[in-house]
């Protein structure tokens, strides 16, 4: 554990709390892509199956439970409790175009060919692109509420901080995991355009609005 990893995890946790709090307080999930949230639940479910096979630390186990529980809670809020506010007309990204290639790639490029390892690899690949339905939705409507922007910024920062953590770990332990690193870089790059808009607009008090 190092400062980059810890702040990365905290950014991830803050993102989830911002999202749940926004939906709960406004009693609405307008502007939120249910499809991205379904992909995140699939990511955590396939990655954290190792909860039953390998123990790392209390911290790891606790965070895995939190990520799993909150991802399913988010899906419940979007598809059940506040279903009437779900903007499904704008949430039209075809998620099979992300799931199937991630699965195919996980079967082809992995560290070790067994059930848990392929699912772990699938979760890494899928996570790198899981935000696309949400970014697609923002681009379709041409705008995002400030709170949704804060959510996206925290969520994007998490993997960027993990990249610093991987550099640090390589320097101090000689540890590296190419699959996680390449996917993490792809994931962070997908947020770059958003980061630019966030810094130049949202932080200056303006609404995130895309040029027409």
């Amino acid at each position: 554990m190092n400062i980059f990893r810890l702040t990365g995890d905290l950014a991830h946790l803050i993102a989830i709390i911002i999202l749940l709090h926004k939906i709960w307080k406004s009693r609405s999930c307008a502007g939120i892509s249910g499809k991205s949230q379904v992909l995140f639940a699939l990511v955590y479910t396939t990655r954290y199956l190792d909860l039953v096979t390998s123990y790392v630390s209390i911290y790891n186990t606790f965070m895995k439970f939190v990520f799993l529980a909150t991802s399913y809670a988010t899906i419940y809020l979007i598809y059940v409790k506040f279903k009437a506010t779900y903007d499904h007309n704008h949430d039209t990204f075809r998620i099979e175009f992300l799931i199937l290639p991630s699965l195919a790639l996980a079967l082809l490029i992995n560290h070790y060919f067994n059930f848990l390892e392929v699912l772990w690899t699938f979760s890494i690949y899928l996570e790198s692109v899981a935000i696309l339905p949400q970014l697609f939705m923002v681009s379709k409507t041409g705008e995002a509420e400030s709170i949704t922007s804060h959510y996206l910024f925290a969520l994007g920062s998490y993997r960027a901080l993990y990249i610093l953590n991987w550099i640090y770990r390589y320097a101090t332990e000689g540890h590296y995991d190419l699959i996680a690193i390449v996917a993490g870089v792809v994931q962070t790059v997908l947020y770059c355009d958003f980061f630019y808009l966030y810094i130049t607009k949202v932080l200056k008090g303006k609404k995130l609005q895309l040029p027409a």
């Binding site: 990893r5 995890d9 190792d50 390998s54 790891n60 560290h111 070790y112 540890h175 996680a180």
Partner: peptide, 10 residues
């Protein structure tokens, strides 16, 4: 090098 015995990150 990645360990195959389990992943220690989230």
């Amino acid at each position: 090098v990645a360990t195959h015995q389990g992943h220690d990150e989230l």
